[in-house]
Structure formats: structure tokens, C-alpha cells
């Protein structure tokens, strides 16, 4: 296994470091580099594809053009799908953050009968395959006219996103020192005052992270969207799925780049904020 190789390389390096001959180590680094290349390549490849001039996919891309981005922004069907997705993601973020935060407080800090079971139920939508959820949701909600419909999506996506909020806010609450809340009560604050003055400001990074996860869980969601989209109400993921399946144009690369940029910006912000607060607490 590569691991033993790495360790072996270390020993070999120790023995022969002066000689400078270090074949095993180089091999290990090469293997690691290949895996990392495998990881990152498909994610970044869409960027050059989206600015090539050819109207079919070719590599290496020739020329430079923004026409595929312009095509994306001028195409009413892409635009309506994008706005539809953004609206759903916005409502999902709000609903999932509020519902998930309240539930996390109860699940971490409350006295509840059958807490373990409730916690398992809360994360069930993460465990149950999305194809099963999608088909089941369609079976129940299609007769009610909730497919291809904003409200249907809002309900489905809030349900899919809420576990992320419960997990991140729950983790933040677990790190939160309950003595701080007692101290607030001792200082004369009511439970509600203690929550808003002391608990909430301290778990806010967790709540913000949960909100970002909820947004992306909705905005990037494809499986359920595939089933409950209609001809009118169609998310950007469903539109992409169709276009990938039927007419593979470089516009998809442009859309992919936009989607990736949004995801990376949001997650990168959270990650940097997390690292910064982590580094801050060390001192």
C-alpha cells in the first residue's frame, strides 16, 4: 500500500538523505500528485472549455470568447431556470435555517423524550438515497399540483437542507459553554434575553455556515429537482441535466463555471471564517 511506501520512503530518506538519492520518496510523491490531479482536474476543466471558440467540445480549446456566457445570459430558458433556482434556494435557506436552528437548540440543550430517535430522524434525509426521496415525493405531491411549482420545491428542498443546519448549529451549540448562559441568568437576564444576548452571538458562525450549506444543498440539488421539475417550473440543475443529455454545447461549460464560482465563493468564505475563528481562539 502507498502508505507503507510513504513510511518506507521516510526511512530510506533518513538513511540516505545525504546521498540525495531518494527514489521511493519521489515515487510516493508522484503517486500522491496523480491522485490530487485526478481530484482537481475535472473540477477545473470546465473553465477553459467555457471560453473556447469552437461550438463543440474540443481540447485544447482554441481562441478566447465570452459568447457562451453571453448566450447563457441571453437565453430566456436558462435565465428563468436560474431565477427559479435562486428563489427556491433563498426561501430554503431562510426556512431551513430558522427551523434547523430551533430544532438544534432543543436537540442539544433541551430535555426531550426519545432524543436519540429524534436525532436519527433529523438526519434521515441525508442517509436515505435521494432517488428514493425524489420518487416518493413525486408520488405524493404530483397529484396535489406541487410539481413544477415553487412551493413544492421550497418544501422538498427545505426538507433536504434542514439536516445540514441542525448538524452545524448543533455542533456550534455543543462547543458553546453552558456556563455562559448561566452567567447571563445570574446577571439578571431572562432566558430569552440570555439567548439573544449571549447564546446567539456565540453560535452565529455556526448558524451562518448552516445557512450556506442550506443554500448550496438547494441550489446544487439535482436528483429531486429532476423528478419534480415541470415544463414551466424548472431548476437550473434540471435544465443542465437535459442539456447534457440532449445537446452538449459549451454553454453548459459556461453555466458550470458560474455554478462552481458561486459554490466556491460561498464555501471558501465559510472555510476562511472558520479557520480564522479557530486560529483566534488559540491565542
Amino acid at each position: 500500500m502507498a502508505e507503507a511506501d510513504l513510511a518506507l520512503a521516510e526511512r530510506v530518506a533518513n538513511v540516505r538523505s545525504r546521498a540525495g538519492l531518494d527514489v521511493a520518496r519521489i515515487l510516493v510523491i508522484l503517486g500522491l500528485g496523480l491522485v490530487l490531479f485526478f481530484l482537481i482536474l475535472p473540477t477545473l476543466i470546465v473553465v477553459p472549455m467555457s471560453v473556447g471558440t469552437a461550438s463543440y467540445i474540443s481540447f485544447p480549446p482554441e481562441g478566447f470568447t465570452l459568447r457562451w456566457y453571453i448566450a447563457y445570459f441571453r437565453d430566456p430558458s436558462w435565465m428563468s431556470a436560474t431565477w427559479f433556482s435562486l428563489r427556491i434556494a433563498g426561501v430554503t435557506t431562510l426556512a431551513a435555517t430558522v427551523i434547523g436552528t430551533l430544532a438544534a437548540i432543543a436537540l442539544v440543550r433541551g430535555r426531550l423524550p426519545g432524543k436519540e430517535l429524534l436525532q436519527a430522524f433529523t438526519i434521515a434525509p441525508l442517509v436515505v438515497p435521494h432517488i428514493v426521496i425524489a420518487v416518493a415525493f413525486y408520488l405524493t405531491f404530483a397529484p396535489l399540483g406541487l410539481t413544477g411549482n415553487f412551493y413544492g420545491f421550497a418544501i422538498a428542498h427545505t426538507m433536504l437542507a434542514v439536516p445540514y443546519v441542525v448538524i452545524t448549529v448543533g455542533a456550534a451549540l455543543q462547543r458553546f459553554d453552558p456556563a455562559l448562559e448561566l452567567a447571563a441568568l445570574n446577571c439578571g437576564a431572562t432566558r430569552l434575553q440570555a439567548f439573544f444576548h449571549v447564546v446567539l452571538p456565540n453560535i452565529l458562525p455556526g448558524v451562518a455556515a448552516g445557512a450556506v450549506f442550506a443554500f448550496l444543498a438547494s441550489f446544487d440539488e439535482a436528483t429531486v429537482a429532476f423528478f419534480i421539475s415541470g415544463i414551466e417550473g424548472k431548476t437550473i440543475t434540471r435544465k443542465m441535466f437535459e442539456d447534457i443529455d440532449f445537446n452538449l454545447t459549451p454553454v453548459i461549460a459556461a453555466v458550470s463555471t458560474v455554478l462552481t464560482l458561486i459554490s466556491l465563493t460561498l464555501m471558501g468564505t465559510i472555510e476562511i471564517a472558520r479557520r480564522r475563528s479557530g486560529a483566534g481562539s488559540d491565542h
Partner: peptide, 17 residues
């Protein structure tokens, strides 16, 4: 970075590849 990228985008990338 791949984890944060839409699955659809990554799948599309593999089709291109």
C-alpha cells in the same frame, strides 16, 4: 474544491473528458 462543486458540474466534466 471538488466537494464544494455541484455534482452535476463534475459529472459534466467527466463527459467532456
Amino acid at each position: 474544491v471538488p466537494l464544494w462543486t455541484s455534482i452535476l458540474v463534475r459529472t459534466y466534466a467527466w463527459i467532456v473528458l
